[in-house]
Nucleic acid binder design. Sequence first.
DNA 1: GAACGATACGTTATATTGTATCCTTCGTTG
DNA 2: CAACGAAGGATACAATATAACGTATCGTTC
Lengths: 158, 158
Amino acid sequence: MARQLARTAPLAAKWRKLAEGRCAEKGERLTPARLAVYAEMLARRRAVSAYELIGLLEKRQERKIAPLTVYRHLDFLIRTGLVHRLQSTQTYLPCDHPDQAHESQFLLCSSCGNVDEVESTGLEALLSRIADERGFRPDNAVVEVKGLCGACAVEEQD
Amino acid sequence: MARQLARTAPLAAKWRKLAEGRCAEKGERLTPARLAVYAEMLARRRAVSAYELIGLLEKRQERKIAPLTVYRHLDFLIRTGLVHRLQSTQTYLPCDHPDQAHESQFLLCSSCGNVDEVESTGLEALLSRIADERGFRPDNAVVEVKGLCGACAVEEQD
DNA sequence: GAACGATACGTTATATTGTATCCTTCGTTG
DNA sequence: CAACGAAGGATACAATATAACGTATCGTTC
């Protein structure tokens, strides 16, 4: 197992602490395999598909990894709020707001692929109100805006 | 071709007119095959997956239909605003607001599967503002709220 | 109406994303 | 350490979506 640990992407203490904290809160176990997947995602800091992630992990660990394995780890990471799934691109992104669990909204740049995670309580409130008016009891909301990020919008003007 | 037309789901004049109007606006062609897919979707009036739709069409037309065919028709229907794609369930739903093109938000019931299409200009405005504050130039927004519809929420109380 | 370009359609194969099943391993707890 | 439940692994497969290529159809222009 020491070998496997040695082949995990470097993980800043900040993120490790965060993961430990979340697991403690939710009564989940933070295993090396789970941590390895999280570390790999943090090493990229961008949205990756599940299969991209498999490739990255296989390369780092020099062994085959079954899709199901990664999907289970992703489930875990999403359950604990450490990772978000972007529905409109079927990709996964480590949460960028370590402070506390929350609902997020995302701005996806269709040019450079960058994703900006934002948190608007105003938007959440409005969504709640809209649901409420229709007798709908909301559980969770997917809000993903596609467009051009600031940098790419500027470039395009030229 | 008469055979194929005969095996198209019935399509109320209202929806046919709508499709014709949208095509005229956008310079698209409204072919029998496209209309058949639209009619099939309207006959269900609920969100269906692409492969469900293939099955329905194959049954009605008594012949094999390649996935790509249906995906192309779906592209067309989405382009013309006649159909929405629900990102969080990878399903497709005929638009329920025939008046004019628009951005929609969706309330998806996780119990009965019903989808309520709503249109909130307030929400759109807020999303624009959030994007604008970050220099993001929005193109289109995915807003999909999962939860329990009124009817299912009541049932669950028992 | 013949020729042409653009759009739509069909077929085959394949890529991508995600699950089912079954068994093994690990960690805790008594 | 025995027993139990959670986590991990292997194999197979299901579901969703696209690539590449050729053919047919439509609309225009001559």
